[in-house]
Design a protein around this nucleic acid. Structure first.
Lengths: 217, 217
DNA sequence: TGTACATCAGTGAACGCGCGTTCACTGATGTAC
DNA sequence: TGTACATCAGTGAACGCGCGTTCACTGATGTAC
């Protein structure tokens, strides 16, 4: 990945004719653009400009514009995943396995929505990949984290095995819809207090609707 | 609205120098474009082209591109609303008021998702309005229909008044997220059978999570 | 009922913009001998 | 260790595209008298 120039930690890539790590630099620049203006802002010309390189140079590393955008989408999705794992790590394992499992399910949702609010442009970009990703792809994927949380719920006895199939789509739909409505939908512009109350209500609905947890108030 | 030319039902607007109803024609053309290519396909030039008129002519009726797009968004939202009311009309009033109210809630969701699947481009367009609409605006609005359904649930005794506040956001998030995932998200490309099962599961989660209805299987 | 004239609703040409992409090229790098 | 040379990774200029928007204009409409 490091092709020599920056091997000494020297950042004077400018002085060199060869960049050394242009592909990554372009993807990073693309992510910055996506952060500001969403997927539509990710253009070959803008990314090359940000890196300080000619648009043509990008074609050494990407076959076309779609290839760059796809790479940026993957990065955005990875950031979403790491937001979820960050929230999952804050969940302490309590005495009650069922309660712990429910808290872990809730954490996946909070990590998802928090990322959407903190990085709306990247969130939108994460879901604009041209090719449809296989939902079951990789353990380090939002969907995989959700599946695991639901399986834990079954293992803890808080969700009947009969109700387990397809439950992932209920949780995912609710949390994804919440994020979309808050970030780019009619619920953008909600004040923090209202927003937090809405988030809590939606998560309660998911817990109640999936696992039969009594509704909090 | 009809400014003379078409007052006799004559469709030979082409022969006339003045169009007669250009504003509506542009909005309709914009909706057709949105149907095919989503909000990004709605351009002044393309709409004018479709109507057979110079781009400049559009500026007699819209201050700029954003004004045209906003008008198309409103039309798309109106179509979404009418899809919901169409589904609501199919719900027969049964003996059990609670059960009827639940079925009406489910109908709003089905109308919402069905429209998204049938008209993905228009669905996306409905939610790309530049200005944030007041969620409580008008009785003929998806949000208003949802609120009414939930109030009926309370009136029928199927939803406690204490749980009523903010319940609309739970239902909306779940159904909206489902629609987005199915139409432009990772769940596009699901086959009809799987898709129908997923829709049913999500609606069950909403009913269960909001009104405490036992989970169907 | 006729007519002069203001107003309305279009036309046609042009502008500048940013984009994706391609071409022939050149400087830098690394490797065979 | 030196050197010739193939290959790699960039440059610079140019193309065609569709877009939003503006300009001066002209044909059609409607109204005051």
């Amino acid at each position: 990945m490091w092709a020599g120039v920056n091997i000494l930690g020297v950042t004077s890539a400018k002085s060199s004719y060869h960049h050394g790590d242009l592909r990554n630099a372009l993807v990073q620049a693309g992510a910055d653009l996506a952060e500001q203006g969403g997927p539509a802002a990710v253009t070959i010309r803008a990314a090359a400009r940000a890196v300080g390189v000619t648009p043509t140079a990008a074609y050494r590393h990407f076959t076309d514009h779609a290839a760059l955008l796809d790479a940026v989408c993957d990065l955005a999705m990875a950031r979403l995943t790491s937001s979820m794992t960050r929230y999952l790590r804050t969940v302490t394992t309590g005495d009650d396995a069922g309660e712990t499992a429910v808290r872990r399910l809730e954490a996946t949702g909070r990590g998802y929505v928090s990322f959407a609010i903190a990085e709306p442009g990247l969130f939108r970009t994460a879901f604009s990949k041209a090719t449809v990703p296989e939902p079951s792809a990789g353990t380090e994927h939002p969907f995989a984290l959700l599946m695991k949380a639901l399986d834990e719920l079954v293992a803890a006895g808080s969700l009947s095995a009969d109700d387990r199939p397809l439950a992932e789509f209920g949780a995912w739909s609710a949390v994804h819809g919440l994020a979309v409505l808050l970030v780019e939908g009619p619920l953008r512009g909600l004040r923090r207090r209202e927003r937090d109350a809405v988030i809590q209500k939606v998560l309660d609905m998911v817990k109640h609707g999936i696992a039969g947890t009594p509704q909090a108030r």
